[in-house]
């Protein structure tokens, strides 16, 4: 396996605030990587730096061997690196299918081909029943799937998913897990997840990176991360570490 994404010493300052501090990691081709950390750890900022939304303060980023540091977001997307947004602002003017078509138009000028591609992804993302609805009319879970479908329609080789399971109920989380697995396994797309829903990250990820205060504090297999006291401390604070250990002991 070779690295599809290499992040080398990325630092991002907002005014006096350091959101990302010298972050380095790489993602292997075909990997499914989880990126976790408490709120404000700098996960979304990192996504935004990779996707070109924010220029980085220092460091370099490579995608498939090409340097993408400080490229514009649309240039990054054209290279085959797609992403979703944490807050998906519902589209007022376009139906579900049309939204997905906006994505598929990246690779074709033909309306017919764009539509075919969009319809295929629509079915894949289990959105058939919503085809002609406005996105704003959909339940949250379906809106998240539209966001993913739109990103998928740009035919990326790598997909950055920003909290796609937030606000979903257990059934919907199961469905989402199945879909992400299919995107990864069947379509061969490298996936990086930012997620707070631990069940989803720990079940899906082959490897997990933990961010806290803009730094990587741990990295490894999900099972190892779950046991990592640093991580538990970062998430829950000191006094919970003992509690969790106690609970685990009972189980």
């Amino acid at each position: 396996m070779s690295a599809i994404l290499q992040v080398q010493g990325v630092t991002k300052d907002f005014g006096g605030l350091r959101a990302n501090d010298n972050i380095s990691f790489s993602v292997e081709k075909g990997e499914l990587l989880g990126l976790i950390g408490p709120n404000g750890a700098g996960k979304s900022t990192l996504f935004n730096c990779i996707a070109g939304v924010h220029p980085v303060t220092a460091g370099r980023i490579f995608f498939e061997g090409k340097e993408i540091t400080n490229l514009k977001p649309h240039q990054v997307a054209r290279l085959g690196l797609a992403r979703t947004f944490q807050i998906f602002v519902a589209s007022g003017d376009l139906s579900v299918l049309e939204n997905i078509m906006v994505g598929s138009f990246l690779r074709t000028r033909s309306r017919k081909i764009a539509r075919q591609k969009a319809e295929e992804i629509l079915v894949f993302m289990e959105l058939q029943e919503h085809v002609d609805q406005w996105v704003s009319e959909l339940p949250v879970a379906a809106q998240k799937r539209v966001a993913m479908a739109t990103a998928l329609a740009t035919q990326p080789r790598m997909l950055l998913l920003d909290e796609v399971a937030a606000g979903l109920n257990p059934t919907e989380i199961d469905q989402m897990m199945g879909l992400i697995r299919q995107i990864h396994d069947d379509r061969g797309i490298t996936v990086v997840l930012i997620e707070h829903v631990m069940e989803l990250v720990m079940n899906l990820s082959q490897r997990v990176i933990v961010l806290e205060s803009g730094k990587i504090i741990a990295e490894g297999k999900p099972e190892a991360i779950k046991q990592n006291p640093e991580v538990i401390k970062a998430y829950l604070g000191e006094r919970y570490v003992a509690k969790i250990a106690e609970a685990e002991g009972k189980a």
């Binding site: 939304v53 998906f88 602002v89």
Partner: peptide
């Protein structure tokens, strides 16, 4: 209105940031 440019434009109107992430040069 249903050409590539038309679709991209409507996406831009809704949310420029999302439009950019879909490879559109806003």
């Amino acid at each position: 209105r249903k050409s590539r440019l038309g679709f991209q434009l409507r996406a831009i109107k809704d949310n420029e940031e999302v439009a950019r992430s879909l490879g559109i040069n806003v």
